[in-house]
Design a protein around this nucleic acid. Sequence first.
DNA 1: GTCTATATAACGATAGAC
DNA 2: GTCTATCGTTATATAGAC
Lengths: 229, 229
Amino acid sequence: MNELPFTYQAFLSGAEISLERICADLVDQHRDKIQIKKEKLAARNMFRIVSAVISLSQKKGFQGMSLRDLSEETGMSMGALYNYFGSKEELFEMIYSQGRVFVFEVLRSHASDDNPDVRLREAICAHLYLSEALSRVFSFFFMEARNLSLPNQKNVINLEQMTESFFEDILQEGKQKGSFSIESPEMIAAAIKALLQNWYLKKYRFSRRKLTVENYARFVIGFVSSNLR
Amino acid sequence: MNELPFTYQAFLSGAEISLERICADLVDQHRDKIQIKKEKLAARNMFRIVSAVISLSQKKGFQGMSLRDLSEETGMSMGALYNYFGSKEELFEMIYSQGRVFVFEVLRSHASDDNPDVRLREAICAHLYLSEALSRVFSFFFMEARNLSLPNQKNVINLEQMTESFFEDILQEGKQKGSFSIESPEMIAAAIKALLQNWYLKKYRFSRRKLTVENYARFVIGFVSSNLR
DNA sequence: GTCTATATAACGATAGAC
DNA sequence: GTCTATCGTTATATAGAC
């Protein structure tokens, strides 16, 4: 049995991993565009909005979700909604960019060991645990990434490319230090990313098998490790 | 270097693998709903329509694609389009159900060797080659599956489960025959499917690296094989 | 009374449909 | 081309807190 660098519980205890947290940051970051003065109220309602967006997008896609759907789901009026964003497109960009910042920060803070071998396992665990806690958010990002507008795509790097580069860097360093005996770090990185995405995209399958995220982490680490030596 | 059971060229020579073929079948299968009498003309225009649907859906999603977009992309008038389908939703169902039939038939006709070890490689190759030839179709199916009405969604799940079960059965048999030394065939099957999906979902990444489908097939077979013994 | 947040209702544009 | 429904959006009225 593979040893995990940290448990799911320890991961959750370390920092606040929640959509509420992301929404609070979002309100803080977009203070100028949000016309609600009271910060606590703004954060609370933004959470209702973002939750509804993710839920509705799961059913019919972001484009297929109307603002009237959003109004009904949140219990807020159309007019009230527009105090929290300038346009439907801007709402998407806000959610995406804030989520991306959050994911990157969490990944970076958990996978920091000097040893590439350890750091790789840390990164796999951190990503799996994070996507477990925020599975709906991750699925939303994956499925709706194409809604990013082109001018912003220069500033907002695709979340997926960021993730893959993160793993590729670890593998590259491990290769140079002699920890890993691999041909192509980018191919292994792509494979790891596919296995990680599989967890949150097909979560309903795994939960039906009563498979915990920790056991899946052990499986992925084992599966990948067989190809590093 | 791993040996592949058959080349991409050999696979393509075996049967007509194309969107044109699927569209011809589609016209044939939905003869009652399509108001165009001349079969060749109907098949040709249906191909233009389906190509445009897939192309536009890739950019903005099926919901985000308007019929005016479709009219412009195909060069056909709105009125003309409605000779080929009864509604936007029906158009989607037609494409999806016909594609599903085609994919299943092609997959089933390959991967029939008695040796589990050989059959596993056959199945991986067949799936990868098929998704290479029809990558836009596969991506469309994956991304737009949620647009299916509820009665049909059960068929989608069954197809997904069938694909995964197909690999699971091979692994299970190989385990019993002693060819594979594995704990959980279903976990390996899930991992294989994730790696296969990765090919057509992120094709643009791989083609930028000048990676051929055969080389990716070798990579997947090698990556998986490391975990079978 | 003043400020903030929410609700109402209607605009022009565009959707699917024929 | 034309229909009606609905889209995103916004001007304006209303309600509530201090």
